[in-house]
Each structure stands twice: as C-alpha cells, then as structure tokens.
C-alpha cells in the first residue's frame, strides 16, 4: 500500500482520562492534516469509542494516530490495539445494540459509521486491533472484519 507515515502520535490507554487525551491528540493531528468542522468531531468521537473499548474490555492498550497519504489523498489513520481477551464473535460485536460492556452497544459499530475505512482484527486470548482511516473530502465507507 503506497501510504506513507508522516507524523505519528502514540497514546497509551489505561484509564478513562486517557480516552480524553487520545481524542484530543487525534483532533489536533486531524486539524494538522487539514480536517475541519464536523470531520474533526467525527474523528474525535471515533477515537473515543475505540479507546473506551480498550478500557472496558482489555483495561490497557494504545491508540496510534498517524497522518497518511495515498496518491493525492490525505487523511488520518487511527489504530487501537490491545492484548486483552479478544472478541469471540466479531459479527455479533459489530451488531448495533450488542454490548458486553457498560456502553450502549454502539461503540464499535458506531465508530465504523464515522470513518471511511474500518478493519477489526481480533483473536481470543491474543487481543484486538481496530484500524480506521478517514480521508479528507471523502465520505465513502469500507469495512473489513477478520
């Protein structure tokens, strides 16, 4: 994939205060990447959902934020990674309204709707990685689950 990392921020996530730090860092980086207005809110909200997923299910992990290029497209990549219990049934976890935690069950499926690309990779006992991308001036949505 011809994407190139330019600026990267890694935020360790281990408490609800870290959720705020992660989304504030994400908003700042997205602003640097050229996003504005409601796109900044969408990025920050998506980060909030995946970071909370880490705190609720794995206790700790990290959120890595990166400015990306692909051809003449510019955007931001958000990777939320943990070594928690993993997700047994991914399609169930991605269903609206399903929750094993204290949320509305809208966290991951909600985050998917806020970004352009969404990939969820999880193995029981190994951990979970969520990869999201949001491109400038693009509003299509692609989702992959493994």
């Amino acid at each position: 994939m011809p994407s190139e990392a330019e600026t990267e921020v890694s935020v360790p996530v281990g408490s609800d205060a870290d959720i705020i730090i992660a989304r504030q860092q994400g908003r700042a980086l997205a602003e640097k990447a050229g996003f504005s207005g409601s796109d900044l809110t969408l990025v920050a909200t998506a980060i909030s959902e995946v970071a909370r997923n880490i705190v609720e299910h794995a206790r700790r992990g990290e959120v890595v934020l990166r400015m990306i290029h692909q051809g003449d497209k510019r955007g931001i990549s958000i990777v939320a990674r943990d070594e928690g219990p993993g997700i047994d049934d991914i399609s169930l976890a991605m269903q609206d309204g399903y929750s094993s935690g204290k949320g509305l069950g809208l966290g991951l499926p909600g985050a998917r709707r806020l970004v352009d690309e969404f990939e969820l990779e999880s193995s029981v006992g190994v951990g979970t990685t969520v990869r999201m991308k949001k491109w400038l001036n693009s509003h299509r949505s692609v989702a992959k689950y493994r």
């Binding site: 207005g37 409601s38 900044l40 809110t41 969408l42 909200t45 959902e49 609206d96 509305l104 809208l106 499926p109 909600g110 985050a111 709707r113 806020l114």
Partner: peptide, 14 residues
C-alpha cells in the same frame, strides 16, 4: 449541543 456534535450523534445512531 453544537451542530458538529449533533451530526456525529446522528452518524453514531445516538
């Protein structure tokens, strides 16, 4: 509730 947040809430299904 700010307009951007209203938009994000609708997108999230909240």
């Amino acid at each position: 509730i700010q307009p951007e947040i209203a938009f994000a809430m609708v997108q999230l299904g909240l």
